[in-house]
Design a protein around this nucleic acid. Structure first.
Lengths: 132, 132
DNA sequence: GCAATAAACGGGTATATGCATACACATGAC
DNA sequence: GTCATGTGTATGCATATACCCGTTTATTGC
């Protein structure tokens, strides 16, 4: 009768996987969303909120709020850009440190997921992410 | 150097897919999370919050809040169970109606995703969801 | 140079989600 | 029957997320 809802499958899987990453990163005091954001900021060195939103595929207002939490926690700093409208975000020393501390934990999580899913499903996951 | 974060792939894919379902269901005034919850309630006719939480793999407190929104919107009703601690949830007439109106829209979304991903990736999605 | 338009943020409102804690009710040992 | 323990909810606090609207700052057309 009713086929499984693909969206619900995804949502549930994501919650579980994210919980695993969150738990792994907890010692550093950040979660997986923050880790991803910190890494994007690191890659660009200097980014505006709008650009970060594009990179992360997130609404600008979401990025703004998430960055605010990172700033409050001393992991990033923001400044006005040349374009006075722009808020330019970059890692603070604390953020660089946190990222360095978090990366091995994140790596371990990656390995764990790879082990759990196996090469074929990992490949499929990449393909699915690319397709949607 | 840095491999793609599987968690971030999943999170991003889920956001996009959920947005598609949310948009499809918008005419009925519910989102995909609510649709999934309504369907679970319909299947069981009568469920406690704890059981719903188990079914949906969600924290009990999350279920409690989500059900509260459904109740406010007149889609479900809750009553005290035999066990006086229990809140028993069931669909209201409005909820039955909404579910009926939403289901064709949801079906269309399912078809759209199937078309977008193709049989192989759909199968893989099921396998991944099962594995995590 | 000025008016219209576009772009970047910020804040309000709303949902979904989890954890920790408090409170209410049940149940079993005695 | 009473007390300890377990189970079911509710609530406070925090994050992530989106949409809409208002304000500020560029940019562009004339």
């Amino acid at each position: 009768m009713t086929s499984p809802c693909y969206c619900t499958l995804l949502r549930t899987a994501t919650r579980k996987v994210a919980a695993a990453y969150d738990a792994a990163l907890a010692p550093v005091g950040i979660n997986i969303a923050q880790y991803a954001l910190l890494r994007m900021i690191q890659n660009r060195q200097q980014v505006s909120l709008t650009e970060l939103g594009r990179l992360a595929d997130l609404d600008r207002s979401t990025i703004g709020r998430n960055v605010k939490v990172l700033e409050r926690d001393g992991l990033v700093k923001t400044a006005r850009g040349e374009d006075q409208r722009e808020a330019v975000v970059s890692l603070s020393p604390g953020g660089i440190e946190a990222l360095a501390a978090a990366t091995p934990l994140w790596e371990a999580c990656q390995r764990q997921i790879e082990k759990r899913l196996g090469t074929d499903k990992i490949e499929a996951l990449r393909a699915i992410a690319h397709a949607v």
